[in-house]
Amino acid sequence: MSHYLLSVMEPVGPRPAPEVLEPIMQAVGDVDQAMREAGVWVYAGGLHDPSTATVLRAKDGDVIPTDGPFIEAREHLGGFTIIDADDLDAALDWGGRLAVATGLPIEVRPFRY
């Protein structure tokens, strides 16, 4: 088994209205529960908006903090799930299920060991 990161790429902008978001969250919860039942779920979490981020850069032996990312993007990392899957095909299957549940792009990436 190998660990995979399933990254949820959210569009920049306001959160959807509750009547739109609630069915999405229910569908995500269903996929999350299926992952747990299959024994592949390791950890999952949602992130605050990119404006809450602090970027730390090393320069000349010092660490310089700056607010948020520098580049403007149409999408950002909004959440993630870490799974322990048999292979890439299995990870892609779980990522596809998450994409259907969220309606958002999901990046599937293996961890390097």
Rank of each mutant, 00 (worst) to 15 (best):
V42W: 03
K59M: 11
G95D: 03
L104Q: 07
L6E: 02
R112D: 13
D86P: 14
M25D: 09
L47P: 02
V55C: 09
F70T: 10
S2C: 14
G95Y: 03
D93E: 15
S7C: 11
W41V: 05
D86Q: 15
D49C: 00
H48M: 15
E72Y: 00
L98G: 02
T66S: 06
A90I: 00
H48Q: 15
T54E: 04
P69H: 07
G96Y: 05
I82M: 08
Q26C: 12
S7K: 08
G45N: 11
G45S: 09
P65C: 03
D67M: 01
L88Q: 07
I106T: 02
Y113S: 15
A85N: 04
A38N: 04
P14L: 15
R109E: 06
I83G: 04
D87Y: 09
R97Q: 08
G103R: 01
T54D: 05
R109A: 11
V20H: 13
S51L: 10
P105N: 14
A53I: 08
R109D: 06
D49T: 04
P23K: 07
D49S: 07
M9Y: 07
G45M: 11
G46N: 08
P16E: 09
P16F: 05
M9G: 06
A38P: 02
A38F: 01
E37H: 00
E19H: 12
L47G: 07
F70A: 12
R15A: 15
G45A: 11
F80W: 06
L47M: 13
E19I: 11
F80T: 06
A73C: 12
S51E: 12
A58N: 02
A91C: 14
G46S: 10
E75S: 03
A53R: 03
L47N: 04
D93P: 08
H48E: 15
A17K: 13
P23Y: 03
I71G: 06
G95A: 06
D89A: 13
D49M: 01
W94S: 04
P69M: 07
T54K: 06
P50C: 09
Q33T: 02
S2I: 13
E37M: 01
D86F: 13
R36F: 02
A101C: 05
A73S: 12
T81N: 09
G79H: 02
